[in-house]
Amino acid sequence: MNAVFLITRREFAAFFATPIAYVFIAIFLMLSGIFTFFMGELYERGQADLQPFFNFHPWLYLFLVPAIAMRGWAEERRSGTIELLMTLPVTVTQTVLGKFFAAWLVLLLALALTFPIWLTVNYLGHPDNGIVLAAYIGSWLMAGAFLAISLCMSALTKNQVIAFVLAIVVCFLFVVSGSDIVLDAFTQWAGNATVDTIASFSFLERFSAMAKGVLALNDFIYFMLVIGLWLYACQIIVEQKKAA
């Protein structure tokens, strides 16, 4: 467990030793501001809640999380440091977890730095802060799911651009799997059960409940499962590449 901590600390520091974390956080804050105030019309709605803020998170994450994760394994492979890492006395699982936690913490920091929006709403009215907290937790969980997918894609290639594009495609499928874009392809021939299962994969559907402050256990478990499974896949890919 100590190794996970050491790797997390190294990776986290690496984000800040390069401009990556700063650029990421700055852009995240700018975009979430723009979305909330201009497109979400926070003021015009006349309601003291953060729904317009949270509703855009899946779309923000769709592009920003693959950007922060694409480097994860691809760079390690390109620069050859993966050979160093894999010959240190740590297991693949420990490195996979370490990398995931480091990036997840950067995402947490980015989320935490959106607090001025929360202050604004509290200044203007009396929002239910329990709901806001639940929505923040939900958003962070969803970011973790995006991150696990993106890291797994990064493990597939040594080219960061390819990792980025692959991650966006897979994440996009998960975001929209509840919408007609995906479901129409199945309704023609698949049974209702299949269609419902696919629809239930949708990040958008699950997060829309979370954004309203409903932190249901099944949604929570769903995101944890997505994270767990994609990280497991990531570990298998890293180990397979070792043998090849």
Partner: peptide, 27 residues
């Protein structure tokens, strides 16, 4: 102890940080 071909190391770390990290992870 292993020196891989081309001596790869984490480019964004300083020499001291890097050696410190390896020493930590070596327990």
């Amino acid at each position: 102890g292993y020196l891989p071909e081309g001596a790869p190391a984490y480019a964004e770390m300083t020499t001291f940080q890097f050696l410190n990290f390896i020493a930590d992870i070596r327990g």
